[in-house]
Design a protein around this nucleic acid. Sequence first.
DNA 1: TCTGGGGTCCTAGGACCC
DNA 2: TCTGGGGTCCTAGGACCC
Length: 432
Amino acid sequence: MRAAPGPDLYAMVDCNNFYASCERVFDPALEGRPVVVLSNNDGCVIARSEEAKALGIAMGEPAFRRETFFARHGVHVRSSNYALYGDMSARVAQVLESFCPDVERYSIDECFLLLRGSRLATPERLLALAAGIRRTVRRWTGIPVCVGLARTKTLAKVANRLAKRNPDCGGVRLLDDPADVEAQLARFDVGDVWGVGRRNAARLRAMGVDTALKLARLPRELTRRTLTVTGLHTVLELGRIPCISFEAAPPPAKSLVSSRSFGTRVRDLPSLEEAVSFHAQRVAEKLRSRRLVAGAVQVFIQTNPHQPDPQHSGSGCLALDAPTAHTPDIHARALRILRSVYRPGFLYQKVGILALDLTPEGRRQLCLDEPDGETRRAREALMRVLDGVNAAYGRGTLRLAASGLGKRPWHMRQAYRSPRFTTSWDELPVAR
DNA sequence: TCTGGGGTCCTAGGACCC
DNA sequence: TCTGGGGTCCTAGGACCC
């Protein structure tokens, strides 16, 4: 006789202070020290080690306001290094895949594991599995993680948070017993629930709903009305009813963006054109690397909302003649849009380009305006050369002259970046 | 003088996630 | 001087059609 299968369980594996942990793996002197990682442009704090949190440094704080504080308290500051973090993230996911075939890479620092009903499903064995995962990830990648187990993704996120908060858990927490779930939700702030953001947390609090348990008990119709169907799913998930499905593979992308704030704000059209040229190249490169083509292009520009200066934001969208990932096509459309939305006299802070209506490269529809076979082969060959040179000699080796040569005021600041230890031969760590 | 109802599609804006 | 970037989903409202 086979044992009856247990219920499916979700494990949420979340890397602790991921970016700060990545920095520590390659610079052990940071161990035990406060570490913060800054956003692109060294704008604001996007990751903190525990020691940095203990100093009262908040998530999202503008870095420039904390410079003297950082210096005074010996806070180690790093610019973000996504080449390093992305690579470390893939290594962590690989370790998880050695434990469980069903791994969803939810974000750069989180994975869901689907533990299908099995005889493993006794609390002791589940916790032992979670502890094994935690130990192995740490040993093989150097990254500390916590593991939360529950019937739904939303509760697994709660369990993960409990594992992090409570040192007695040893980094793992099973949240399955209904009485336990209820007791924990009663002490869990509604704003900490996955899917409840700042705005909705405030609305809920105004209704007297300040804990996850009160949210779980909200009548369904009222929930749907105030929080839409997404909120309803959250409520059901808190009640142990799975609504948010496991995504083995990421769904096909619908849009893709390249955007960035400027190192120095920009007033003139020629500089904006350079920046747009830069982003047009990046968008086209990203499309090609993911084997996608875009049907339309959108460009937006905006001034700095944090400044008292006159504000302007504009955006426009144009269809491409045929779905494409050809840099010059996307570039030409993007410039046209920029010129139509630009208004002189404003200090712009940011531009971005979106590629929209994405479809897989092979499956594009035939179009009357499609270039003939020979032209198309020549265009594709050109892009292959472009990508090949940039892969071999570094991004930006071969690029549009329109994106400007040399250091530009709109280039981002990145004063504290660590080396790309794991993805660039020139920046490998050296043991002396 | 009277001026419907129901359906679809698109877009902008808002909310959320990390 | 200096406040990130990259995504998704949902809804309301307008345009349009019959």
